[in-house]
């Protein structure tokens, strides 16, 4: 299933809803779907805030599918080349509130929730690919 959304935060809930339904339909456990939603929010917010110039109207295309025991979600945009964030200090490594940086957790959490998180640049598009395994032995 593929859908296009305007690349703005006003699309966020609709896009999350679309992916949640499509992923569960593709076999994802509803609890895992929450983790996927969390990861997806981080990726979509990044696209909405940074892919296009301020004031420029842009699209994000979301594709959800099933592939050999996993659900695959791809987010595409036609904006500026995405620079994967460099690993800096993150709150999860801090030991007290004063030291903890305020940001830097989004991509870390996305990576924790997913089985795979990759980025590629193809024909002027940024493509972020996320996968999560689906239960293969039926309900237990």
């Amino acid at each position: 299933m593929t859908r296009d959304f305007p690349a703005g935060l006003e699309s966020l809930y609709e896009a999350l809803e679309f992916v949640r339904h499509a992923a569960i339909e593709a076999g994802l456990d509803p609890r895992d779907a929450q983790g996927l939603e969390l990861a997806l929010e981080e990726i979509l917010v990044n696209v909405c805030n940074y892919a296009y110039e301020p004031g420029q109207e842009g699209l994000m295309r979301i594709r959800v599918g099933a592939e050999e025991g996993r659900v695959v979600v791809e987010v595409e945009d036609w904006g500026r080349e995405f620079t994967p964030p460099r690993g800096g200090p993150a709150a999860h490594e801090a030991t007290c509130v004063d030291e903890a940086p305020i940001g830097g957790l989004g991509v870390f959490l996305a990576g924790q929730m997913l089985d795979e998180l990759t980025y590629r640049r193809e024909e002027q598009r940024n493509i972020v690919r996320m996968t999560m395994r689906t239960p293969s032995c039926g309900a237990v």
Partner: peptide, 19 residues
């Protein structure tokens, strides 16, 4: 029901200010 990194940022900012 749901907490993302944006929510964590709000909580840590609050904790810093309160501290």
């Amino acid at each position: 029901d749901y907490l993302s990194s944006a929510g964590l940022r709000s909580i840590i900012s609050m904790a810093k200010q309160a501290g």
